[in-house]
Nucleic acid binder design. Structure first.
Lengths: 243, 243
DNA sequence: GAGAACAATGAACACTGTTTAGTGAAAGGG
DNA sequence: CCCTTTCACTAAACAGTGTTCATTGTTCTC
């Protein structure tokens, strides 16, 4: 013994070197364009060497993104301090959007690539999944649950799982569309962040009672109100739409 | 001359055979899994033969999807009869969702794969782009414009291009999320259509004035109303959410 | 019948992810 | 101190990919 520790440390070091090289290539060129040979070449190894650290390319990329799943969850940490569950939801959506737009290639791999129903691959992440403290999806599920408990959503919106997907989809819609079509000439897709924020706002506005929206916007006890524009406009303005 | 017509016809026939083979393979296995050799093998040709009909794999797939872009637009044809622009928007969204869920592999290639800024490739589709009668995006843009003209959206939602993207993103969000994660074990993503419809409804509810929503829901001159749930619930129920 | 046109071929090229046998330098046991 | 085992790493190969190219063989035109 004794040296066994050093050996393990050395192995962990080259593992980290592989991850580092893969990360920068990955961020710059995207998943498909990163080949095992290029990763190896970047650290002056042979492609086959990687296979004594990772079973295959997919697992390498999963290891890479695991850290980013962590930072996505971390980027949402601050919303836990928010009392109001609806505002929590809004803040979560914005953090999610910000993350996606800042790490488009990672986002692409994490949420826009089909991860084949590989049960082996899933087991790897087990322990995290389902735990709201580590799994962003579980966290979203919980916050939606808080909104439901407090009856913050209007009548027909009661399906917990469906509402979770709905909110996720709203945020995902804008960022994924921008990531794939942001550079297309035939669609002038500028200001994705503003668009995403607006969609999040409009979803929350459409799902919460107008009275509540008015209250949140600080328009309590408006005269004629409990009516249309002001309340909505208020919440939207407050949310920084069309800044 | 004379036989030149037959030659052209013969060439068109094998072109069609290629497209047919590619289509079925494509639908069954998806873009990445379809190789030129497999397409060729399916019709007892050599891979190289395809290259005298299509310049490369991408263009083959574009040709394949061009027809489906047509049918997507066609699937939206019936909404032109709808008077109310907001209801038009809702119907368009639903048609879009239906199309995506019925042709997931095509949808994947059309809207979820990055089409590199290849100007050559874009020129091919020119003439269609921008024409609302052939281009679904342009059509959506026009309908959003109608809503704006009639001032159907509440205060801060005035940006024509942004609103177009917002509505597109809402529909895209659910279907693309389902297409990539529909089979994941860690997220029970059932009933995507209902979820998508609900999101479309909630977006429209959040963007149109409550009074209008009430009017559309047939709740004109409700007593206490102009208030919360009923109006929204009405429009949602009418829209078949949580059927 | 000579010559051009041209779709289709087979072989190759440069890649890809992955597997294999083998090398060489350490570590552990006697 | 030597011998064996371990093991990260290499070189070479395999099967697959998209694509290119010289070469067929058939057909049409003159």
């Amino acid at each position: 013994m004794g040296s066994v520790g050093r050996r393990a440390r050395e192995k962990a070091e080259t593992r980290e070197k592989i991850l580092g090289a893969a990360r920068s290539l990955f961020i710059e060129h995207g998943y498909e364009s990163v080949s095992m040979r290029k990763v190896a070449e970047a650290i002056e190894y042979t492609a086959a060497a990687i296979y004594s650290h990772f079973p295959d390319k997919q697992r390498l990329m999963v290891a890479l993104c695991d850290q980013d799943f962590g930072s996505l969850r971390e980027a949402m940490r601050h919303v836990e301090a928010i009392r109001d569950p609806v505002e929590k939801l809004r803040a979560m959506g914005r953090a999610y959007v910000d993350f996606a737009l800042e790490h488009p290639h990672h986002y692409r791999f994490m949420f826009m690539s089909p991860h084949p129903g590989d049960p082996e691959l899933m087991k790897e992440c087990e322990g995290k999944h389902g735990n709201p403290d580590q799994d962003g999806y579980a966290f979203l599920h919980r916050v939606v649950g808080e909104c439901l408990e407090q009856k913050r959503f209007v009548k027909p919106y009661r399906d917990h799982a469906m509402l979770t997907h709905l909110h996720w989809a709203a945020a995902h819609g804008v960022v994924s569309l921008f990531i794939t079509h942001g550079k297309d000439q035939w669609v002038d897709f500028t200001r994705p962040k503003e668009t995403a924020y607006a969609l999040l706002d409009v979803v929350l506005a459409g799902m919460t009672a107008p009275a509540e929206a008015a209250a949140i916007a600080g328009t309590k006890r408006a005269k004629k109100s409990s009516s249309k524009a002001p309340a909505r406009a208020g919440i939207a303005r407050r949310s920084g739409v069309r800044a």
